[in-house]
């Protein structure tokens, strides 16, 4: 049987969910025996490939690029997993939603600045006025709450998915876990 194709993706998160994935430690090598990591910040693949079986997505949708990227991921992935509270609820990134975007930008790029105040615009993605969780943008197949979900939770979920079963996460994790 050929190996399954696994991907991990960062949108607007703190990377803590990816760190929790790395906290699989030696179990990472066990996962690598069952699945190829075909796209991830940990590997040098530049473009999200076609035919991905499982994609673990960390973070909320905050910028034009997040928006485009999650659509590409959805189109090329069989099972899309919202990994962690930012993906599931928009969590911390969405805390800026209660202020107009320009006010947040002004604090960083006008008020707290010594030289050349002004919002960067060249070669950086435009930000969305409101940050949104993934399932508001594309359909999501599996939700794993937690900030971050523990390595044990991630290992359980990924193992079940690799075996073709759907994980039962409610006894294992919760929001803010």
């Amino acid at each position: 049987m050929s190996k399954l194709r696994l991907a991990t993706v960062w949108l607007d998160g703190c990377s803590g969910c990816h760190m929790s994935f790395l906290d699989l430690d030696e179990r990472l090598l066990a996962v690598a025996e069952k699945a190829d990591l075909v796209y991830s910040p940990l590997v040098d693949q530049k473009e999200f490939p076609a035919g991905v079986d499982i994609a673990l997505v960390e973070g909320a949708v905050s910028s034009e690029d997040d928006l485009h990227k999650i659509q590409v991921v959805r189109a090329r992935t069989r099972i899309l997993v919202s990994l962690g509270d930012c993906a599931v609820t928009a969590n911390v990134p969405s805390m800026r939603n209660k202020f107009p975007l320009q006010m947040s930008l002004d604090r960083a790029y006008k008020e707290n600045v010594t030289l050349d105040p002004g919002t960067p615009t060249q070669g950086v993605p435009a930000l969305l006025e409101k940050v949104r969780p993934i399932h508001e943008v594309v359909p999501v197949d599996v939700f794993i709450p937690g900030c971050p979900p523990s390595a044990d939770t991630i290992f359980y979920a990924v193992s079940e998915l690799l075996e073709g079963r759907s994980p039962d996460l409610s006894p294992r994790t919760r929001f803010g876990a």
Binding site: D12, S62, S63, D65
Partner: peptide, 10 residues
């Protein structure tokens, strides 16, 4: 950490 620009197009 924290954000992205990567969009799979390029």
């Amino acid at each position: 950490s924290c954000s992205t620009h990567a969009d799979g197009r390029l």
